[in-house]
């Protein structure tokens, strides 16, 4: 089992080590893809935090009808094959899509744009953050909230002084998970956003096409992506460790 996990990674590193590695890793195509990947996945993560935190808070604290169904639907993209996600996005927001055709009327066309890349990443990655945040908020002792209420705290103070300190780490590790998932997003992106260097060609896309043109570039990019992902995961693990102070 471990061999299955580790040998492929090992092979990528071994095969990528050659005199051309830095030429490949710093080629214009590779750097464009790296920049685009970092920019889009960061925007995705920021949007996920800004929009997902209130949503998670509401899900954790309000009594809503059909709440469990809503939660299920929000979790769905986590397990959905990315190709389904890409197709669904295209059918919904494409130029002739169910909603995209209306956007098209006012001159907005989403497919093949950087916005489409971010939408695809949001679709598949933001649920990871929302899920962590929801679990975090649910875990807060209700007595603490009542105590804060008695003290006369308003909603914002409650959120800032009680919720955030207690759930900060959970939120952060959720955000990192979203970020790494967004960084690796491929299937939904290639269907919905297409592939154009500097506009929609993210790292996974460049790796896929590199597989067809230049294995060297693909390997160099893979190594970079593995290193970034490992660092981010290591950070999450540190955050998940319980405090002792």
């Amino acid at each position: 089992m471990l061999g299955l996990f580790l040998l492929p990674l090992f092979a990528v590193f071994v095969r990528s080590i050659n005199s051309e590695f830095f030429n490949y890793a710093f080629s214009k195509q590779a750097l464009d893809a790296l920049k685009l990947s970092l920019a889009t996945s960061t925007i995705t993560t920021v949007c996920a935090i800004l929009l997902g935190t209130p949503l998670a808070y509401v899900l954790a604290n309000w009594k809503l009808k059909y709440k469990s169904w809503l939660e299920l639907l929000i979790d769905l993209p986590i397990v959905l094959p990315p190709s389904v996600a890409g197709l669904a996005l295209l059918i919904a927001f494409g130029r002739r899509g169910l909603f995209g055709s209306y956007l098209n009327l006012i001159g907005i066309s989403l497919p093949f744009t950087t916005v489409a890349v971010i939408m695809a990443q949001m679709f598949v990655a933001a649920p990871l953050y929302i899920r962590s945040a929801r679990v975090g908020f649910t875990g807060i002792d209700k007595q603490l909230e009542e105590a804060a209420n008695v003290e006369g705290a308003n909603r914002w103070q409650m959120f800032r002084e009680v919720m955030l300190p207690l759930t900060g780490k959970t939120l952060l590790s959720g955000a990192i998970l979203t970020w790494t998932r967004a960084l690796g997003e491929f299937g939904a992106t290639i269907l919905f956003a297409g592939n154009l260097e500097g506009v929609t060609q993210t790292m996974p896309m460049a790796i896929y096409l590199g597989f067809e043109r230049n294995l060297g570039v693909a390997l160099a990019l893979s190594v970079m992506l593995v290193i970034v992902s490992v660092s981010l995961l290591a950070l999450t693990r540190r955050l998940e460790k319980p405090d002792h102070d």
Partner: peptide, 20 residues
């Protein structure tokens, strides 16, 4: 005017068929 470089010819057909 090229908005996407697809990875195989059938993808080109699909994107035109869909009207994208």
């Amino acid at each position: 005017n090229v908005v996407s470089n697809e990875d195989n010819v059938k993808q080109v057909v699909a994107k035109v068929q869909l009207g994208e």
